[in-house]
Amino acid sequence: MENENMTLYTVSVFSENRVGLLNQISIIFTRRRLNIETLSVSPSALKGIHKFTITTFSDADTIEKVVKQIDKRVDIIKAFYNTDEDLVYQEIALYKIATDQLIKLGSIEEMIRTYNIRILEMNETCVVLEKTGHYEETQALFSELSQKVNVLQFIRSGRVAINKSKIERLSDMLANLNSRKPEGYVEDDEYAGY
């Protein structure tokens, strides 16, 4: 996709849940001229903390600097990066096909078994298929479907990823950060931040 020295990195960011965080993160990529390939944002297991999972093609030196710059932002709790070997990761894709076209194909049992497809919706006009997997897998299904029928809509999510090589629980990390709190210092109720 990019030049050969580039590796696909997955950047994971835990942040405070405040307006404008995505902008703070994305401008750091923009400044180093890195394109964000995929992006997924959601609340984490702990209330008030959001998690960003970002993939980008970069060289090792640049990604390290970018992640340090992200981590430096006051509203960012922690940022780190991994390559694919360190991660279990997944994407989800949805495919919309006209019902009559799908029926004309005859049987789709084999395709469903091969690709582990789920059918989410089926009505007179359209069928919506779902497939989870790596980019290559969801892409392969798209290619095969496209050869056979007209895919009306295709959408793929950003990556979600879990680190498999080291134990780093968010709660432990927070406890570690909170241990820096000055003795006797009581924080105001963490501001809701809207």
Binding site: V74, L174, K181
Partner: peptide, 11 residues
């Protein structure tokens, strides 16, 4: 008013 002395994620 209470002065701020700590915010998580900023060291």
């Amino acid at each position: 008013y209470k002065k701020c002395e700590f915010t998580r994620g900023y060291i």
